[in-house]
């Protein structure tokens, strides 16, 4: 399992322009406040074994499909829960975090809204120029087709086009 960690690790897809942008914002926010480190922001990478060392049930395919936050105790938060925890640990958004724990009849409505917002953002990533985010949801496919056409690319079936830019990072 390696040496003990005291900070959560936020894994992000560095092949995705949107994910890179958000991870960059989190890093800048952490640095600008001059706070003691509260989070490690790390690209997912390409080594399945290295991820399993963080948490044995962490699969590299899942890591690329959904945002994961690995807590110091080895547990994982995914999707909207990972976003909420990241906001909680980011100085600029720390004030917002208690909202997500607010309960109403045993439910957390604001966390539910955040979960939906994360899913929506995750869905529209291919439209925002992410070559690695794969298959858009059914409702997005006409828009995705239009975006590809405008960029002069043909839509692919069962196949993610790899631009020379993606290959030669």
């Amino acid at each position: 399992m390696g040496e003990p960690r005291h900070l959560p690790i936020l894994l992000f897809n560095d092949e995705c322009a949107v994910c890179r942008l958000i991870a960059g914002w989190v890093c800048r926010s952490l640095q600008s406040q001059g706070d003691a480190a509260t989070l490690i922001v790390q690209p997912i990478g390409n080594d399945p074994a290295a991820l399993r060392a963080l948490n044995p049930s962490l699969d590299i395919w899942d890591a690329y499909a959904n945002i994961h936050l690995i807590m110091p105790d080895g547990s994982m938060k995914v999707n909207g829960e990972a976003v909420a925890e990241t906001l909680r640990r980011t100085p600029a958004t720390r004030w917002l975090a208690p909202c997500f724990n607010w309960q109403f009849f045993g439910r957390r409505p604001l966390q539910a809204i955040l979960n939906v917002a994360y899913s929506a953002l995750s869905d529209i990533r291919p439209l925002l120029g992410c070559e690695s985010c794969g298959i858009p949801s059914l409702w997005l496919r006409p828009f995705h087709w239009m975006a590809l056409t405008l960029r002069g690319k043909t839509a692919t079936r069962n196949h993610s086009a790899v631009s020379s830019q993606t290959i030669r990072r």
Binding site: N13, E15, P48, W61, Y64, A65, S132, G134, I135, N158
Partner: peptide, 12 residues
């Protein structure tokens, strides 16, 4: 393949 490719994930 690439781990970030959704089609590869479905094929795996």
């Amino acid at each position: 393949m690439s781990y970030g490719c959704e089609h590869c994930r479905l094929l795996e």
